[in-house]
């Protein structure tokens, strides 16, 4: 994307044109932080953490924010959602606290942590956004929004009990044999393109693997071939006796 844009700028006569080719991944890898826009903070499905002290927060905070004062953050790990892809946005009246918070969350394994450069409640109102006053939330309630094609953990349980839904395990044969979901059928991902005939078109199909990576590839392939298909984007473990665990 960026070389293309740079090429256009050059064509239009701009003199000094550069590309930061390491881009966002390189920037994060070097320990730097990213910032989110006010629009994302106000409307996104995020974990929003207000790092200021409770007294200041109650006087005016961003709606949906959860207050964890910066000094308490390092001890508050268990408050955060189990899913490490949850987008977490930190804000404070001291941006240095927010930057440090991003690094703390990174150490806990969270992958999408950003800073919102908060300029105070007045600035938010001036930009046309609402501000909440009074008692602020202390606990995080974040529910992951699933992409089209992902099956929820609850629906996965239902799928395993239903005759109208065929569950296909796309792991390797050895992985399947060491334990699989009750009723699941094994077609390893790499043999899937050659074995489409074995998959009924009159049933809903759910594909899964061990983490969701192979499941997603199988999902894309089957969707293309016209199947009504979903995939499990979660980790799972199955014992030889048919007991299983699914978690994110």
């Amino acid at each position: 994307m960026s070389p293309k844009s740079a090429g256009l700028a050059k064509k239009w006569g701009y003199g000094d044109v550069k590309v930061y080719s390491n881009g966002v991944p390189g920037w994060k890898k070097a320990g730097n932080y990213l910032v989110s826009t006010i629009d994302f903070v106000m409307t996104g499905n995020i974990v929003l953490v207000d790092l200021r002290s409770p007294q200041v927060v109650n006087a005016g905070h961003i709606p949906r924010a959860v207050n964890i004062p910066f000094k308490d953050l390092s001890g508050a790990k268990e408050k955060f959602p189990p899913s490490k892809v949850a987008p977490i946005v930190f804000y404070s009246d001291n941006i240095e606290d927010s930057k440090k918070a991003v690094n703390i969350a990174r150490k806990w394994g969270y992958k999408n942590n950003t800073v919102f450069p908060f300029e105070g409640p007045k600035e938010c109102v001036a930009k046309g956004y609402e501000i909440s006053t009074g008692e602020v939330a202390r606990d995080i309630h974040w529910v992951r929004k699933r992409d089209i094609g992902e099956i929820s953990l609850k629906d996965m349980d239902t799928a395993l009990k239903s005759d109208a839904i065929k569950v296909i395990d796309v792991r390797g044969m050895d992985e399947y044999e060491s334990g699989h979901f009750p009723g699941a059928f094994n077609i390893p991902l790499d043999t899937l393109p050659q074995r489409l005939k074995e998959i009924p078109k009159d049933k809903f199909i759910v594909v899964h693997c061990k983490t969701g990576v192979r499941g997603e590839m199988a999902y894309l392939l089957l969707k293309e071939k016209g199947y009504a298909v979903k995939y499990l984007n979660a980790k799972c473990k199955c014992k030889p006796d048919g007991t299983y665990w699914i978690w994110e």
């Binding site: 994307m1 960026s2 701009y14 000094d16 550069k18 881009g23 390189g26 920037w27």
Partner: peptide
């Protein structure tokens, strides 16, 4: 859409592509 000429333009995206 680009800023006025006379400054360094630095483009980036989601990786080394």
């Amino acid at each position: 859409l680009l800023p006025a000429k006379g400054k360094t333009l630095i483009f980036y995206c989601g990786g080394p592509t």
